[in-house]
Design a protein around this nucleic acid. Sequence first.
DNA 1: TATCATTGTGTTGAAAATACGCATTAAAAT
DNA 2: ATTTTAATGCGTATTTTCAACACAATGATA
Lengths: 257, 257
Amino acid sequence: MEYQKELKRLIFDLKTNYLPSVSIDLVIFGFHDGQLKVLLLRWKTTDKWCLPGGRIRHEENMEAAAYRSLRERTGLSEIFLQQFHTFGDVDRYTHFSRHDTLSKLGLPEEDLKEFASRDVSVGYYALVEFAGATPTPDLFTDECCWWDIDQIPLLLFDHNDMITLALKTLRRQLSYQPIGYNLLPDKFTMPDLQQLYETILGQSLDRRNFQKRMLGYGILERLEERKTGGAHKAPYLYRFNKENYEKALRDEILFVG
Amino acid sequence: MEYQKELKRLIFDLKTNYLPSVSIDLVIFGFHDGQLKVLLLRWKTTDKWCLPGGRIRHEENMEAAAYRSLRERTGLSEIFLQQFHTFGDVDRYTHFSRHDTLSKLGLPEEDLKEFASRDVSVGYYALVEFAGATPTPDLFTDECCWWDIDQIPLLLFDHNDMITLALKTLRRQLSYQPIGYNLLPDKFTMPDLQQLYETILGQSLDRRNFQKRMLGYGILERLEERKTGGAHKAPYLYRFNKENYEKALRDEILFVG
DNA sequence: TATCATTGTGTTGAAAATACGCATTAAAAT
DNA sequence: ATTTTAATGCGTATTTTCAACACAATGATA
């Protein structure tokens, strides 16, 4: 059985080359059709979903490990990635037994014992451009795809809690840092940007005040082009001024909140 | 040599009963004489200082492990404790070699190898009442005492960075949560509270506006007593209304910022 | 060419944050 | 005992920010 062999090799690799007791979980946010989405994986031979994750190599910085996992699941690099919390409860595996879940992979009991032991997990959230990502499952999973944030099912482990906290952190971050650089295409309209903010915050904002504030921060460049094709008045296209955008990120200027 | 024996036992205990690869570091803030203080430990037989820390038992929640370490260093429980960041760089041991530092303990080379390997460390910060704490060193350290926040020396490992980030997080927290419950004595004056805020924020605030805002949040109860003894007009004593204080913590109402 | 929904810009009023005035007070100085 | 001093308690203006709303401009559609 080719798969079992590969799995064996993977387990051996994990045991020897990666830090024990610590794992990484990723809440990857995308934005499409006015909806905030999260990338989920379906556990092999089950109908249960979970967050993508990874582990840290012995000679690898933790953040680099998170970026690596992100790249493996989406094909993207150069992405906004932010650590938001580390989860260390013993009973992080409430909804479904971790032992049972892992046994579905067809692991021998000896490996299960070690593998199913308790981990501390560092949570990161990422903001990626929906269109550019190529969702790719890993060896533990059959399927990888986007889910609407308000239609997430009951997930494996404590992953529902992770998404909730990631979103809460993201919303708070919105109040002191700009957002959108990795979520929107290079050129976008003001309504696009506003819809992004509204989706993340879960509330509608006044169109005119929003525009005023955004322009006031000096992180946007208005292009001469307009977005044609849609009905009615054609809106201007904007682009982020990367320099000012990153300065705003550093300085943590107050934003919409 | 009794100490070597005890150290051996400790190392064995750590290897068998605690999670490998993960440690906890604590930035314990106190407030005294108008100064923000941090609790530091002096590494055995050296003049180098570091943050207190600990490890997680296999069947112990991570937060419980942090509380346990906090209790061991200060004698205090029931304390404000908050996770602020997890540090996972490979070269977290820049200023001083981790191998050399650990060898000062008199460890045999075999233990050193395993023990000096790279850890991921979860950082917590705590706010404690200065007067109530009893600083206590551990087996790795000779001395445990408070340092003024602006007189911290070059510390072992990446502990200077940890303090910087903890303080940054604390300052940010101040903008959406009340503070002081575990930093001030039971009864305190408005100037006491203001001085605490000013010290943490590193800037002076208008006395009258500060009072107005604080009273407006409804987390303070003014007592009939006044604080006598000092020169000039005697200020009222206040006490936190625990119920409202904790409600404000939960609701994350906006505060001074 | 008129219609329509949406965009771009400006104005106004309320609310909040900030700056500042002054009488009161308790210890210290005279 | 009286005056002085410096800090407290409470109050009022001023400025700034935020939220609500009005209206002209635009470009595809009918």
